[in-house]
Design a protein around this nucleic acid. Structure first.
Length: 425
RNA sequence: GGAGGGUUGGCUGAGUGGUUGAAAGCACCGGUCUUGAAAACCGGCAUGGGUUUACGCCCAUCCAGGGUUCGAAUCCCUGACCCUCCGCCA
């Protein structure tokens, strides 16, 4: 959510900045609603003030033993007028609230202009795509040949876009999780957290998935109105919802491994083969809650933490900065890490690191006490995948494959694999 | 699943219809005292919104929503969450 004060005072400037990301802000409508709100609010508050003072007068008269009948007479129609005004004001504020909640974040000035994915800008590359003296296979062929990856069985027990892993491949998947968590907690200063995988709608509103992106979520039916988390960002960021953090406790850095559940109703036909796009996948997520003046530095740092995972796994990747048109709803700036997949001969997204500045914090009422002002101020929130586990498994399989279909185990994972160096073909 | 208790400011916690936005304590900030610190003493200290050049004034908020009333933290209803006991259970 954008600062309502800014939205009121400089709507044209905000509209212009939002136009960069292809969002058309209806300034005329907003101004009209605001003008009406202002007028109605003043009127309502006048009536409330009237009610308060007359109620007080009645109380005093009663205490003195005076006759209160004429006073009661004087306020006889006040209540009806007040209720009508309050009702209209409430409706109006709801309408304004809906409009405001549907406005995306303003892109940071450093974000390149563009209309979509193809205009994202590559910043740097790390590592060399491996050369094979044979035709490299993709993870589906490799996993199926090993007999340790079964999409058909998963489709029978559930449906499409699910995977069944078994044996060493299942263990490798788990090893990746352990490795990532250990790295971030022991070397990058994150606190590991375990969180609910079901959340309420307030939490999803707080991080920006609701109200606009309900179709991407799995929602429970039955007694509770809960949703399956689409990312650990939701529960972890909401840890600080409606709290005031003391300056000494900043910054806060959390890392969590969770499954993620995405309906992605709009993605039919995209990445239908393999584990790239699933309804359920594991992710290790880093979240930072920082002082506003530190958030841009924190984004660079957090992106580096995600890169370290790829470097330690010796997986070639590149870093791109998303252009304005590809930016997520809540983000002010996003770096994507894309890993090299020999099976696709392409770089594919494996991590997304974003600075949300105060956008989520305002929705969540997440604040800290600024020693400069002594008052509660909004925090900034940053998060990033460190990394998407399923896609990392894909990357390891495809980059570490051998001609006979066996898969070499990256050195840093061996301690989590009982010392094994190879998944034999 | 059954029975009961609770939810008040950063924290603890008073407060059952009329200057209560809310006692008191803690924490925090400033001052006096002190070589310095502590203690003691004095003072300050909620959030959001409207309005004003400004001092300020006004409104809302005591879990949420509805109701009763001239007037609700306080009474009634519904819901959420927390706690205790019983039952069941990984």
């Amino acid at each position: 959510m954008l600062d309502p004060k800014l939205l009121r005072s400089h709507p044209e400037q905000i509209a212009e900045q939002l136009r960069r990301r292809g969002f058309e802000l209806d300034v005329a409508r907003l101004n009209r609603l605001e003008a009406e709100r202002k007028q109605l609010q003043v009127q309502t508050q006048q009536l409330q003030s009237e009610r308060n003072s007359s109620a007080r007068a009645i109380g005093q008269a009663k205490a003195k033993g005076d006759d209160i009948a004429p006073l009661l007479q004087a306020v006889s129609d006040l209540k009806a007028r007040l209720e009508a005004a309050e009702e209209r004001l409430r409706e109006l504020q709801e309408e304004i609230g809906e409009v405001v909640m549907g406005i995306p974040n303003i892109p940071h000035e450093s974000v390149p202009d563009g209309t979509g994915e193809e205009e994202n800008v590559e910043l740097r590359r790390w590592g060399e795509p491996p050369r094979f003296d044979f035709e490299p296979r993709d993870h589906v062929d490799l996993g199926t040949a090993l007999g340790q990856m079964d999409f058909e069985a998963a489709a029978r027990m559930t449906g499409s876009r699910f995977t069944l892993l078994s044996g060493p491949l299942a263990r490798l998947h788990r090893a990746l999780i352990q490795f990532m968590l250990d790295l971030h907690t022991s070397e990058h200063g994150y606190t590991e957290v375990y969180v609910p995988y079901l959340v309420n709608s307030d939490s999803l509103r707080g991080t920006g998935q609701l109200p606009k992106f309900e179709q991407d979520l799995f929602r429970l039916s039955g007694e509770h109105d809960y949703y399956l988390i689409p990312t650990a960002e939701v529960p972890v960021t909401n840890m600080v919802r409606e709290t005031i953090i003391e300056a000494a406790d900043m910054p806060r850095r959390f890392v969590a491994h969770t499954p993620c559940f995405r309906s992605e109703a709009g993605s039919y036909g995209k990445d239908t083969r393999g584990m790239i796009r699933q309804h359920q996948f594991e992710k290790v997520e880093m979240v930072q809650v920082v002082r506003p003046q530190e958030s841009w530095q924190a984004l660079e740092q957090l992106t580096g933490h995600a890169e370290t995972v790829l470097q330690k796994l010796d997986l070639p990747y590149r870093v791109v900065v998303l252009c304005t048109g590809d930016l997520g709803f809540s983000a002010a700036k996003t770096y994507d890490l894309e890993v090299w997949l020999p099976g696709q001969q392409n770089y594919r997204e494996i991590s997304s690191c974003s600075n949300f500045v105060d956008f989520q914090a305002r929705r969540m009422k997440a604040r800290w006490r600024d020693p400069e002002t002594g008052r509660p101020e909004l925090v900034h929130t940053i998060n990033g995948s460190g990394l998407a586990v399923g896609r990392t498994l894909v990357a390891v399989m495809e980059n570490y494959q051998k001609k006979d279909g066996s898969i070499q185990i990256p050195e840093v994972l061996r301690e989590y694999m009982g010392g094994a160096e190879l998944i034999p073909g």
